[in-house]
Design a binder for these strands. Structure first.
Lengths: 192, 192
DNA sequence: CCCCTTATAGAACATTTTGTTGCGAATCCT
DNA sequence: AGGATTCGCAACAAAATGTTCTATAAGGGG
């Protein structure tokens, strides 16, 4: 009973948003306009205006599309050090290599004045936090964690530092750094 | 021998940049244009164009002006827990209450495509990092630190988490949270 | 396979924003 | 007081931003 979507709609939608993401990466939010996307894709301006009457909507859709994370199955079979290295290694790769790492700052900035963009971030973040939390809870189940370890703080720390380094401070994320980071967290989390 | 600056120059400069900062806070980088600043200040467009032929320069100047931090004398008389609470409390206030907290995300985003903006961030960050580092080094001098404590990682953690919470995750920074944060860091840093 | 619906490209247009230039008036510096 | 500089303003030119219409093409249902 559901009428299938006109393939022309999804086609223009996809090509337009892909172009928008590309522009976003190379030149920043400022440059994402109906005109620019039209020029890059061949999709006519009038069509773009029909799809996204407001430029903000177009940008937000591009954000959402770019933010869609590769689903990561949490590794929770322990030990904690291994699980964390695994998970944070993936996060690190995502920040280094995928669109998200380049676009995230733009979304952050947009979130300051736009609630929709804020939602995109919140969704993305809470998902990542939940994944890391699962790792800690599994370690707790196995009885690896020290008495009274500040789990919430550790989860936050695990994620904060790589994001800070990459997005705010512009510092590199490599395996050597990751090793030290995980060591530090484990020093606090594990039984002595 | 140094020729004093024409007061008219500094006057227009200041009013223009203050307006630019205000626009930046309320509506984001996108909205900072010669036209908008002119409308808000009464300074004529032609004058603004004479001062900043390129809009990017205007925005960067606004960034720099907004990023100028209140100089904070480092508290390094110990003990570490007290010093850290003091320093991070100030950082927290700055993020919560000053222009910087609202504008930082915009600068981050601009930094993705603009090297000048990147410089603004780097300057600001390295100064803050240095301040926190001084706190740790003083504690080390006093012999408070545990053997082999990962000082660099701790410095990074101390600053990363508040920035992450405020700018990336949009979580609140309050004194209760701060207490836990400092506790966690001290648990790793101090002798048992 | 044909007909009806829907989406698109393109052009033509109005509107707004963005730069540029020249000049008289006001302000500053010496 | 006099010469230089800066300002505001108005008149422009150029480009970007929206809007609307029409012919064409593509899809979907019967």
């Amino acid at each position: 009973m559901k009428k299938s979507e006109d393939p022309r709609l999804v086609a223009t939608r996809n090509t337009a948003l892909d172009a928008a993401i590309e522009i976003l990466r190379m030149e920043g939010v400022l440059a994402v306009t109906h005109g620019a996307v039209s020029a890059k894709t061949g999709v006519s301006r009038s069509t773009l205006y029909r799809h996204w009457p407001d430029i903000v909507q177009l940008r937000n859709d591009a954000f959402k599309r770019a933010a869609t994370p590769p689903k990561i199955a949490a590794k929770t079979n322990g030990p904690l050090h291994a699980d964390l290295s695994w998970m944070l290694g993936i996060l690190m790769s995502a920040l280094n290599e995928t669109q998200w790492g380049q676009i995230a700052p733009q979304v952050m900035a947009a979130a300051a004045t736009d609630d929709d963009a804020k939602l995109v971030i919140n969704d993305f973040m809470s998902e990542r936090m939940a994944t890391v939390r699962a790792v800690f809870e599994a370690a707790n189940q196995r009885g690896e964690l020290a008495e009274g370890a500040p789990i919430e703080g550790l989860i936050e720390t695990a994620i904060s530092v790589p994001y800070f380094r990459k997005i705010i401070a512009g510092l590199p994320l490599d395996h050597e750094w990751l090793e030290g980071h995980v060591d530090m967290i484990c020093a606090l989390a594990l039984k002595k």
